[in-house]
Amino acid sequence: MSASQSAVRSRAEAVKVSRTFDWLICFTLFFVILGGYHVHFMLTGGDWDFWTDWKDRRLWVTVLPIVGITFPAAVQSIFWWRYRLPFGAVLSVLGLLFGEWVNRYLNFWGWTYFPVNFVFPSNFMPGAIVLDVILMLSNSMVLTAVLGGLAYGLLFYPGNWPIIAPLHVPVEYNGMMMTLADLQGYHYVRTGTPEYIRMVEKGTLRTFGKDVAPVSAFFSGFVSIIIYFLWHFFGKWFGKTNFVQST
């Protein structure tokens, strides 16, 4: 068979090869994205995602969407502009959550015995779905960045509230009031993570009283817009094939 001849002999065979190729790519990409996104997220989101006593109304709400919109933006740009496939953000978040759950279950619980109700990961799926849909319907990077980025920040806290609210029920403990999440952090000893490392409820955003979470979410959304642009361009740059030698 010469180089110019086709590797397939019929249309049916071409379709079959194409579908096999689809699954191979999907399977491989899932784990490649999982690895990259997971490492990035552990390094940038880290403790805010590891422990319930870091999941506060200010910094957790602010930081995690900002560092979490990165890979979805990059993968979206490759999948959308090259293939018109609108699932880049969801695929990224599926990979991240799969990796995080494996990590939390096998490492945090399986090896070091921290209870899972203390170390579960944050949920990014509502924002990812909305991000994908906005890109698909608008076919515009700018609109996706502005509307999708904002939505990504805004949906994060309410999307996680049903999971963390039970842990924010107050408890009186030896004469002090704390939440159940605080108590988890106190009870389950972390030798290398002393209490002062915890970056929660810090800042000067006191004017809004108890309604600080929506303000933090808006701020997170605004920054997510900028980060979306940046990582969308990273994705475009990485998605180029200029470096592949043509034969």
Binding site: I134, P158, W161, P166, H168, D182, E201, K210
Partner: peptide, 27 residues
């Protein structure tokens, strides 16, 4: 998209009804 946003809104509302008393983390 609409379904996701609606589920988020409804689940948040029902959570607030189920847990009317919550406090911020103490630091």
């Amino acid at each position: 998209a609409v379904g996701s946003i609606a589920i988020v809104a409804m689940s948040m509302s029902s959570t607030n009804q189920q847990y009317p008393v919550t406090t911020p983390l103490q630091a």
